[in-house]
Amino acid sequence: MKATRSGGLLALYALLLLSAPAAAHHGTASFDTGKDLTLKGTVTEWIWANPHCFLKFDAMDDTGTVRNWAVEVSNPTDMTKRGWARSSFKIGDAVTVSLQPVKNGAPIGRLRSVVLPDGSTLTAMGPPPAAAQ
């Protein structure tokens, strides 16, 4: 019981520490924060830069149309803490991306998590996985 409570407090502490960086550069006004999209795609570009890193990938939507998506995460400093790196993606990688799209329907969004070709997952929101801690 005590351990569970401590674990909860630790998780809350981690969340407090890490929730701020996600909104550091801009707020969420542009994004449909209630919407979740999961797309299978192929990486076309991975930009490791300020103010935000972003991943570009081709993915087919429900209508059979392939669009090139650009989805942002936080900056290299924050992403390093979560286990991300300049070398996290290669062009041509098959990935499954969970994202929050923008409201205007463009293929733009904020990345929640991504499954890499080796089956491992990188997350961009919420508490980081234990491995990155």
Binding site: A49, H52, F54, A70, A106
Partner: peptide, 25 residues
Amino acid sequence: MMEMICSPTEVIEFRKNISDRTNNR
């Protein structure tokens, strides 16, 4: 400490790919 520098080149790239495409017009 890591470098955490605002580079105009990087900002232009970010705007072109993300920011400028997020408007509601």
